[in-house]
Simulated assay, not measured.
Amino acid sequence: MIPLNHIKHILISRTDNVGDLILTLPITGILKKNFPDVKITFLARDYVRDVVKHCIHTDGFLSWDVLSAMKKSDAIAEIKSHGFDVVIHTFPKKEIARLMKKAHVPYRIGTSRRGYHWLNCNEKVNFSRIKSSLHEGQLNLQLLKPFNIDVNKNDFPYLNAQMGFQIKEPLSSNIKSFLKPDRFNLIIHPFTNGHTREWPVSHFIALIQQLPCDRVNVIVTGSPKESDVILNSIMPHCPNITSAAGKCSLSELLQLINAADGLVANATGPLHVAAALGIRALGLYPITKGIDPKRWQPVGKKAEYLTADPNCNAPSCCGKNDCFCMKSITVDQVKNVVMRWIA
């Protein structure tokens, strides 16, 4: 158990993606609630810096892109210069675990299920993400056990309340140009950069075509590399929509989501951002264990989700008790949710 009176600076290591980081934010609020004077820094990739910036519980950011490019001796010196008392490895990474030990961070917390944590962590928590039935946000809380924090208080409203994710910056002129104040501004984010299964593009097109354009302003978002697909595959069939794909920095995308009225997406970062910000958010999910809503559902007061049908009869799915094609989530199901939102 960690001697709590001596803890002044905690580093949370999370070097994967936006959605993963959003679901890690509750531990920042819980730590601040228990230790109001503690300083919390995130070790993460540069591209999620703006997400960390908008969490009211975080005090600093350490770039993994910069740290990983340094000579090992320089990286160790950089870590030492921050005076971390604790590092929490929420996303296990061997190289980071080794650096933290060599930098003599006094308390290094990780799951006991990683062999390299036995060599590099001195506070190990015994749980398995693969075998667990818990949500990702609840699993992250397990790593707070060495602080003697009750991790059983972990329902979704509680997790959401601990995120502290807020965006208060004024909208840029670029973002204002995508919005229409007299309509329901609906963001559709159709792709996931290949991170999970995706609802078919044809279904997204049919959904957009069936929404009343005099009441709904559809804004399609995506990464720069997805913008060509959106331009060539979606825009020709949906002339009344606006594409913001590849036209926003992450900071501007966060602003756009915060200013929108609703968002429809697969299980990807913008969905979790929308849920955390408290706007209407609908996630489209497969039912496969490990990538299903039980593990990754959006956490927010207005968040909801639809799941694929295990009895899908598509050739690629038949007999596998799963919907690999995601076609079994019907356009009408998604449309009904959106129409309920704008009613």
Rank of each mutant, 00 (worst) to 15 (best):
I230Q: 06
H189T: 07
P239D: 07
G194D: 05
T192Q: 06
N193L: 10
V273K: 06
I188T: 12
V201H: 06
V216M: 02
E304T: 15
C238K: 01
V218W: 12
P200D: 02
L254T: 08
C325P: 08
R295E: 02
Y285S: 09
Q209A: 14
T192Y: 06
K302N: 14
A206M: 09
S223N: 10
S249D: 05
C213H: 12
A260K: 03
W296Y: 10
N311K: 11
P224D: 05
C312D: 00
I234A: 05
D322A: 14
G262A: 14
A244E: 05
I205D: 07
P298C: 13
A281Q: 05
K320W: 00
R280L: 08
I241L: 14
I287E: 00
L253R: 00
T288F: 00
S251V: 03
P270V: 10
W199V: 03
N258K: 14
I279W: 03
S251I: 06
L306M: 12
N193K: 15
A244G: 13
N321W: 04
G269K: 07
D292P: 03
T192N: 11
Y305Q: 04
T192G: 14
C317L: 03
D214E: 15
I291F: 03
L253I: 08
D292F: 04
G283P: 05
K247S: 12
L282A: 07
L263E: 05
N240M: 12
K289V: 09
F204G: 02
P190C: 06
I287P: 00
G300A: 08
N232V: 11
K301D: 10
T288H: 00
A259H: 05
A259T: 13
L284S: 01
L263G: 10
V299T: 09
P224G: 09
L271R: 00
N232M: 10
G222K: 06
V299R: 01
P239A: 13
A206Y: 04
C213P: 15
C317A: 08
C312N: 02
D228H: 12
I187C: 07
T192F: 07
S223K: 11
G283V: 10
L277F: 11
G278T: 09
R215H: 15
A267V: 14
Q297G: 03
P298M: 06
N217D: 02
C238G: 06
T288R: 12
L250D: 01
L263A: 04
W199L: 06
S249K: 12
S227T: 03
T196K: 01
C318S: 10
S251M: 09
R280T: 05
C238S: 09
I279E: 01
Y305I: 01
A265N: 08
K320Y: 05
A265E: 02
N313R: 12
A281T: 08
I208R: 06
I279V: 14
L282P: 09
R280Q: 13
D292A: 15
K247W: 08
I287V: 12
V218N: 05
K225Q: 14
F191W: 03
Q209W: 11
D214K: 15
N193I: 01
R197F: 11
F324A: 07
C317Y: 01
W199Q: 02
G222S: 07
A267S: 15
I219C: 05
L284Y: 10
I208S: 06
T268V: 15
G278Y: 10
D214L: 13
Y305S: 02
S233G: 01
T192V: 07
